[in-house]
Nucleic acid binder design. Structure first.
Lengths: 181, 181
DNA sequence: TTGCTCCTCACGTCACGTGAGGTGGC
DNA sequence: TTGCTCCTCACGTCACGTGAGGTGGC
């Protein structure tokens, strides 16, 4: 003999789940106590166990109800139908995965073409009228004012780590020189 | 310039879907006509196209809305999160598949143990007082009155096809004898 | 009396579908 | 006038979760 809360805890469910199961008639308590409490018997618990098994298979509660209340010659057919439905659902999620991957790729592509690589930047700076010396000056200023951002920027151009390190150390050397060290 | 119905048809959606998109603010028409009709522009259509793409990825409409209205540096993160969620969901459905298969197997097993095998039948018939001769007579009767059912029955006992064939041909031979052939 | 469990509504969720009752344009 | 589309509520779906307001047993 159980009350709702006890039965719920025994099966790792919430009380409101059992109240819902009662309301839709898939699991009705065998009796009521004097104080109008729901009283569940061992037979009710056994039924709940079956319900949980079928729920783990993803069957709808209405289906479970008709399955438990009807003779079980339909059970196998229902389970096989569920198997097919699961295949469909998994296929749909796989399709969604493909869509997500495509979206990620197209975004990466767009960013690649939208953002700049080394050649593009050099071209712009040169068009602005900067020579080799001014470009070095530009790196030095960038490194002096925002060294981390400078590093991030260089890496975002797709330059190798060693070249990034070379540019930055050369910039730092120039900074030291300008300080008279 | 489109009205709801037109735009819906163009994208293979229902009118109520667009009404719903309006109500939650993910796609608001740019204007209203004199008669209070929703008026959608090409820009709205472009936005709807993006919405459909993200929906095919299984993103929630709220997420899509914030994704479209915010700068898109969060897009990649959201898509990657969706990819993980999809993996989880697929995993859960696979688990459900395993449960269904187990249920089907256990049902088959239960039926096997509930139903009879050859030894069980022979034991029952022998306990009923039948000797070898009467058992042959029983097969003969069964084969005479319902040959297909006889075959099904023998196969249901898990007997090999060759033994089934032997039993039945012997039964048929007896039938022929009893007819005086 | 204090906690605890119990009770019965009733509303919210998500992405729509489906009327109901009424209006506007060809 | 007849169809057609349009409009705005409002309710239903599925499996619960979450209060709200109140009662019973240790």
């Amino acid at each position: 003999m159980f009350t709702v809360g006890r039965l719920a805890r025994r099966f790792g469910l919430s009380r409101s789940t059992l109240l819902y199961y009662h309301s839709i008639g898939v699991l009705r308590p065998s009796a009521r106590s004097e104080a109008n409490y729901r009283v569940y018997t061992e037979a009710d618990a056994a039924r709940l166990e079956a319900i949980c098994r079928y729920r783990k298979a993803g069957l709808a509660l209405q289906e479970i109800r008709s399955l438990l209340d009807a003779p079980d010659d339909r059970t196998a057919a229902i389970l096989e139908r569920r198997l097919e439905a699961l295949n469909d659902e998994i296929g749909q999620l796989r399709e969604q995965q493909r869509v997500v991957v495509r979206l990620l790729r197209s975004r990466a592509l767009r960013r690649e073409t939208r953002s700049m690589d080394k050649a593009g930047w050099v071209a712009i700076l040169r068009a602005t009228g900067l020579g080799e010396e001014e470009m070095l000056r530009w790196h030095v200023e960038f490194e002096r004012r925002a060294p981390e951002a400078h590093g991030d920027f260089l890496e975002s151009l797709g330059i190798g780590a060693d070249e990034v390190a070379r540019i930055r150390s050369r910039s730092r050397a120039e900074i030291a020189v300008s300080r008279g060290e």
